[in-house]
Structures are given as C-alpha cells and as structure tokens.
Design a protein around this nucleic acid. Structure first.
Lengths: 120, 120
DNA sequence: CCGAATCATTACGATAACGTATCAAAAATA
DNA sequence: TATTTTTGATACGTTATCGTAATGATTCGG
C-alpha cells in the first residue's frame, strides 16, 4: 500500500499537515521567513527560471520594493544570489545557492515527515 | 483511483504544494499572518482544547509575550477569542470564532485545490 | 495568613517590513 | 541623438514585531 494513500487528504487533514509542518519550522532555530520571503524563495526553486524582480513582483502581486527587500534578506542568508543579466543590464537574474537548496530540501523532508505521522 | 494517489507525495512535490498554496494566500487580499501567528491560529483549530498562553508558548517554543501579541492580532481580526478561565482566574482560554473557522476552512480548501492541480 | 510562585500582560528600546515616491542606469523609441 | 520607458534599488515616514524585563492579579505553600 502506497504511503500517500494516507486515507484521503481532505482539506481538514491538509490543514493539520500544514499545522504540523509549520509548527516544526517555528520550533526550530531555522531563520524565520515571512510568508512573502518564503514565497519568493520557493518560487525560485520550484518554478523554472529565469527569475527577475519584475517577474516575481507580478506573479506574486506584490510591489517591486517588497521583492527587492525580500531578496536582500534571502541573499544575506545566502539562500539566493543576484546575478546581473548580460543581455539586459537593467535586469538581474535571481539564482539558487547550495545553502538555499539544503534549506528547502530539509523543509521538504520535514513536510514529508509530518505527512507520515499525520495520524499520530 | 483515489485522488490522493497523485503519483506519490515526495518531498519535492510537497515543496511545490507548499509553494502553490502559499502563493495563493500571498496573492489574495487575505490578512497576511506571520508564521507564528498562523501557527497559533492553526494550533487552536487543530489541536484539542483547552489552549492557554503558556501552553501555546511552550509547545511552540516561543516566548509568552510573543504569544500575547499574536493573540492581540488574531483577536483583532476576530479569528480567535480570549475567555477568562473560571477555575483559575490568572489564566485565559483561547477559543475559536466563526470568522476564524471560515478563514481556515477556506485555506484548507485552497490547499486541496493546489493539490488537485499539482501537475498543471 | 503571608511570602513565593505563576499567570497574562505591558513597557521599553531595537530591529524589520511596509507602501509610495523617487532615483540612476540602461534600453527602446522617435 | 534626444526623449520616453523600463528595471532594480533607495529614501522616507509609518507600522509591526522582536526579546528582555518589569507589572498587576491570582493561586499556592509553609
């Protein structure tokens, strides 16, 4: 029997999954990112490149300065990297880093763990 | 074939699910809660009562003033309610509200929707 | 009883994030 | 080439949250 046929992921159970995984990340000493910051980070790792400030801004429906600030923090954490766009030097390209990959990979594992113990 | 046997919820796919659902909540005009605030709200709705400040504080590994402040915001939104504990009048009991139930119910539906379209 | 412990909250100064307006630099347009 | 547009970043004042330390109220223990 496949692991995911954890009875059926109803909205209520998904809410519990969200709670468990979120609680784990709040408890841990991991850098606590706002919803926006986390959303930016995930976008870069989950959505195919390239990623620019204006692209993230429009897809998230958030002002450009807010994206710039989120990038400031995520770059300071070394979770993302800004790289000048050679073809259009007004733009920058947001890239992944090893540290960011590890952070999100751990987070993904944490969600999977929460899913595994959803009935405990 | 059950809906949830969506191939198999690997950590990477769970990360994408998290991204999609989080993006939806960032995009929407819904009140944006910090991770801690969301965690408090979810705890009250997902974990069996009773809920007190000290209980939330210790389970989340967060200072009591931080919980009080989160409650300030969540009560202002009418997502939670403080009720004096009759048996021990030093304590308060945190309770659910209709508005909070609706908010979380909608959020659960949103996650379910993201799960449904995980492969789009 | 009366001091000590426990509960939630408030005070405080520091830090972080917000939105709007503006900026310099580069590109597109004319 | 001169003007306009676009891009990402900064400036500015405001609001929100933080952690530590106190505060008032209540309960517990001797």
């Amino acid at each position: 029997m496949p692991l995911d046929s954890t009875s059926s992921l109803t909205p209520n159970r998904l809410l519990k999954l969200w709670h468990d995984a979120l609680l784990e990340s709040v408890r841990r000493d991991t850098p606590d990112l706002s919803a926006r910051q986390m959303s930016v980070l995930l976008a870069v790792y989950v959505v195919p490149p390239p990623h620019t400030v204006r692209g993230l801004s429009s897809s998230m429906n958030v002002s450009k300065p807010a994206i710039t600030r989120a990038l400031d923090k995520l770059c300071a954490l070394d979770f993302l990297r800004r790289k000048p766009d050679e073809t259009d030097r007004r733009s920058i390209v947001v890239q992944r880093t090893v540290k960011g990959s590890v952070f999100l990979s751990d987070f993904g594992d944490s969600i999977a763990e929460s899913l595994k113990h959803l009935d405990d």
